[in-house]
Simulated assay, not measured.
Amino acid sequence: MRKRTRAVSRGRTYGLTLLGAALLASAACSSPSSGTATPKADAGTRTVRPVEGCGAGSWTDPADLAPDRTPARCRPGSPPARRLPEPRELTIATGTLGAEYVAPLRVALDKGEFAKEGLDVTLKVLPTPEALPLLAKGEVDALWAAPEAAVMNGIRGGFAIRWVAGNFSPGPKSKSGLWVRLKDGETAAAVRMAGRKLGTMIGKGSVIAYPMEQALERHGGGLDRIRYQQLGSADVLTALENGGVDSAWLLDPVWRRVDGEPDYAFLGGQPPGEPLGGMLYGPSLLDDDVDAGVALLRAYIRTVNTYFAADYKKNESFVTYLAKLLQTDEAILRSTPSLRMDWEIRTGTTDRLQSAYRAQGVAEDDALPESQTVTRSLYEEAVGHRR
């Protein structure tokens, strides 16, 4: 009999946006759950075997934060598929289907990598606040997002959710990040950010708080010393250009519009070599069906090794294919550096994120330990790494 996950019903989503907002607001009055059960995925009882095509380079020390760290890689086509005895239907929630960071999932689906594992995967567009309660209840199986403040607060409130795989870090030539409009006579080195207004489409509680905090502190600012102006995605650059805001967090490919212009300066972006998002699992893959959880990551990792192992934008035919798959302009896709796809999670990332959330005032309790926020054992099993 075919195993199915519970379908996501519109009728059951009433109040979910409100619940998601409540999670974000509850940090000040919540305390870490003391009786959280250890997921089966972390129980240490699974057998890990060597995997063909995945040697010493398929794992890197999580404590290695070197910006020029080479991401873990197996040979193309590895790790080989291990089809599950019975097919599974899985739903992955994602905030968008068109962004480049979602490309490994789109390619895995299109190229049949999930199907090789016996997985019938559906990608469902859902905002993170709506997806989190569904993930915690097992009504969606995974979330392609980031360990934002709402996720941390959800875990603190008892949600069985873990960050189980990374997604990417920026290429060395990327300037996606914090840009400032220079005042008359001001140089990039002399910029002081305290008191300036920052335009962002994400607002407080996003993972960009961590790299933004680093950039601000290098320029006489801090997350608690700037003024926030939340704007629509189409309005951020316009507000920066017309003086509505003094600075902005500009994403790919928007930053190309001001790159090289004398009135603007790039102050910093996401730390190289440190993914800040990726795959989040709920109880259905952490406890109920760990085999399917490993199989899903195996297909994702194989897709990275086969199609995104290096500078994938040097392959012109692949960029053409990717632009069509993502339904984006091919010229725009080519205009920015390749992402450094990376399934591993660095040590301490969720600690640094939570520190930034506290600085923004969206989390006031003690930080959750990494043992309650991160599970590396599933991607380690997928590549055959024994601790």
Rank of each mutant, 00 (worst) to 15 (best):
residue 164 V to Q: 03
residue 121 V to G: 01
residue 126 L to A: 04
residue 142 A to S: 08
residue 170 P to S: 12
residue 178 L to D: 12
residue 139 E to H: 10
residue 66 A to M: 01
residue 121 V to H: 07
residue 128 T to L: 13
residue 122 T to Y: 07
residue 131 A to E: 05
residue 136 A to N: 03
residue 52 E to N: 04
residue 88 R to K: 02
residue 47 T to L: 15
residue 105 L to A: 04
residue 93 A to E: 04
residue 117 E to H: 08
residue 107 V to Y: 00
residue 140 V to K: 08
residue 166 G to L: 00
residue 128 T to C: 06
residue 66 A to V: 09
residue 79 P to F: 01
residue 165 A to L: 09
residue 82 R to E: 15
residue 111 K to L: 13
residue 158 G to P: 05
residue 79 P to L: 01
residue 132 L to N: 02
residue 134 L to S: 07
residue 45 T to H: 13
residue 146 A to V: 07
residue 121 V to S: 09
residue 153 N to W: 01
residue 156 R to T: 15
residue 168 F to P: 04
residue 137 K to I: 05
residue 105 L to E: 10
residue 133 P to C: 08
residue 87 P to A: 02
residue 107 V to E: 14
residue 150 A to T: 11
residue 104 P to Q: 10
residue 138 G to V: 09
residue 97 L to V: 11
residue 102 V to D: 02
residue 119 L to R: 02
residue 78 S to A: 15
residue 176 S to P: 00
residue 46 R to C: 08
residue 122 T to N: 07
residue 126 L to K: 08
residue 119 L to Q: 05
residue 89 E to H: 14
residue 52 E to A: 05
residue 42 D to V: 00
residue 116 K to C: 07
residue 62 P to H: 02
residue 165 A to C: 07
residue 175 K to C: 07
residue 69 R to A: 15
residue 126 L to R: 12
residue 48 V to M: 10
residue 83 R to S: 11
residue 88 R to F: 14
residue 49 R to N: 12
residue 80 P to V: 04
residue 70 T to D: 10
residue 42 D to N: 13
residue 177 G to Q: 03
residue 114 F to G: 03
residue 66 A to H: 14
residue 70 T to Q: 14
residue 91 T to W: 14
residue 102 V to P: 08
residue 145 A to K: 00
residue 102 V to Q: 00
residue 155 I to G: 12
residue 176 S to F: 15
residue 169 S to P: 05
residue 71 P to E: 06
residue 114 F to T: 00
residue 150 A to N: 10
residue 125 V to D: 02
residue 44 G to C: 12
residue 97 L to A: 13
residue 68 D to P: 03
residue 76 P to K: 02
residue 170 P to N: 13
residue 110 D to C: 07
residue 94 T to C: 14
residue 158 G to L: 07
residue 178 L to F: 15
residue 56 A to C: 01
residue 180 V to C: 10
residue 113 E to P: 07
residue 179 W to G: 01
residue 108 A to D: 07
residue 82 R to Q: 15
residue 129 P to V: 10
residue 113 E to Y: 10
residue 68 D to C: 09
residue 58 S to V: 11
